[in-house]
Design a protein around this nucleic acid. Structure first.
Length: 277
DNA sequence: GGCCAGGAGAAAA
DNA sequence: TTTTCTCATGGC
């Protein structure tokens, strides 16, 4: 267990449950257990202190600071969008402390391919099944967890086996894209050097990745805050508050209003709308 | 039993 | 170019 002191403006609840990641559990003591790349981590935040426990302690502080994006000044970022209008200001004030989690690209790509036309619950179920069948087992606090499988395991899963993980019609997308990643046709590292528009087009050139999924991947694992996914919740917010409809109109409005911080604005919007219900 | 979930691709218009 | 249909699965 390590202790990170003087952590301000962190809202663990919103950060973890706002639909960025799917494999976490809320514990009875209010803490959260999340499954990272190579370890299981329990997070508890109280009195501006973040308590971090894990089955693997090496480099833990750096990993968590990076994962939860703790060293970025969110107040400064949010000031750019907060003052646009009252509705946005309220949304942001309701979710102060929501951080953009830095996810592993490989896992993120698979997550959001599965997410298409799917519910958060089903997505989590599929990811858990894939991990149980093909990922490494970890014991943490006397409970069993399964890490998300690495590429050398994923490459051996065929469509039928993915179906057993309840991914439905997305089975062929997964197999194709995992193959593309394996043979570097889809180069996860190269994306880091690309402009956001180029990266979107690059990702979209693979079957199973459209505008929405490409945006989630870039926002959640490449920290491209100028990229933003438009989903049903965001559409609902825009319709109810500004009477703006249609994806292109929403895109225009966001780019004009929030510009480089559209991704942040959208994530706060998404969280606010989901929490209302 | 129809409708919806952090949609995308293919066919049809 | 834009609209419509279909694709598994589970919750309601």
């Amino acid at each position: 267990m390590i202790k990170l002191n003087d952590i301000y403006n962190l809202d663990l609840d919103n950060t973890i449950t706002c639909g960025q990641i799917f494999r976490f559990t809320q514990e009875k003591d209010g803490s959260y257990t999340v499954i990272l790349n190579d370890r299981v981590v329990n997070l508890k935040y109280e009195n501006n202190t973040l308590l971090v426990d894990s089955n693997k302690l090496d480099d833990l502080e750096n990993i968590i600071r990076n994962y939860l994006d703790l060293d970025r000044d969110y107040n400064k970022l949010l000031d750019n969008i907060k003052n646009k209008d009252k509705k946005i200001e309220n949304l942001i004030n309701n979710s102060i402390g929501l951080k953009m989690i830095k996810q592993e690209p490989l896992e993120c790509i698979i997550e959001y391919i599965i997410s298409q036309n799917n519910s958060v619950k089903n997505i989590a179920n599929s990811l858990n099944l894939i991990s149980e069948y093909y990922g490494d087992k970890v014991i943490f606090r006397n409970k069993v967890y399964y890490l998300f499988p690495k590429l050398d395991k994923l490459i051996n899963i065929n469509e039928e086996e993915f179906r057993k993980c309840k991914v439905g019609f997305r089975d062929k997308y997964l197999v194709n894209i995992i193959n593309a990643i394996y043979n570097k046709d889809l180069d996860i590292e190269k994306i880091k050097t690309m402009s956001s528009p180029d990266a979107i087009n690059y990702l979209k050139s693979f079957k199973g990745i459209g505008m929405k999924v490409a945006s989630c991947i870039l926002l959640f694992s490449y920290q491209r805050f100028d990229v933003f996914p438009i989903d049903t919740w965001v559409k609902k917010f825009m319709k109810e508050n500004y009477n703006i409809e249609g994806e292109e109109n929403i895109r225009k409005y966001c780019l004009n209003t929030f510009n480089l911080y559209s991704g942040l604005a959208i994530q706060y919007m998404f969280n606010g709308m989901r929490n209302k219900n």
